[in-house]
Amino acid sequence: MQTNNVYTFQETPKRERKVLGSTIALGLAALVGGIGIDLAINPNAIATITGNTAATATTTGTTKTTSTTGTASTGTVSATGDPIGYQYGTIQLKVTKTNGKITAVDLIQSDATNGREAAFPTLVQAAISSNGSNFGNLGGATFTTDTFKQALDSAISKLG
């Protein structure tokens, strides 16, 4: 599979493609999203696994443990978070900091059925937990100029 040679593709003969003027309106309608969508997005499920867990996390007893070697600023510190319940199971992370920097994020507990499915919620949460809003650009589905202008007033646009 060649994927990085976009600028050196060989000339290929054109297939017969008719260009129909009368259907342009339909094409435009599809392009601007005039067709309704009924996908049931569940923002709560997503919020749960992106670090916004205060409202939805399930805690089983007091499970926070902290082990420290040396002082917090110079040694290695690890902390185990509360188990976080989400739609497909429970995950629990252990975060290790050395000299104030996160050096490891380990999965302590996961009862999700599929290994890969368990890994991804953990990993996306770990990456946002250690970076927070410390990023230069915000990627996402192509926003419109109006949306962009609206977002300029919110905190998120200041990051992008």
Partner: peptide, 11 residues
Amino acid sequence: KIGISKPVSIA
């Protein structure tokens, strides 16, 4: 570093 939006509009 690049942040990836939640699947909701940035607005």
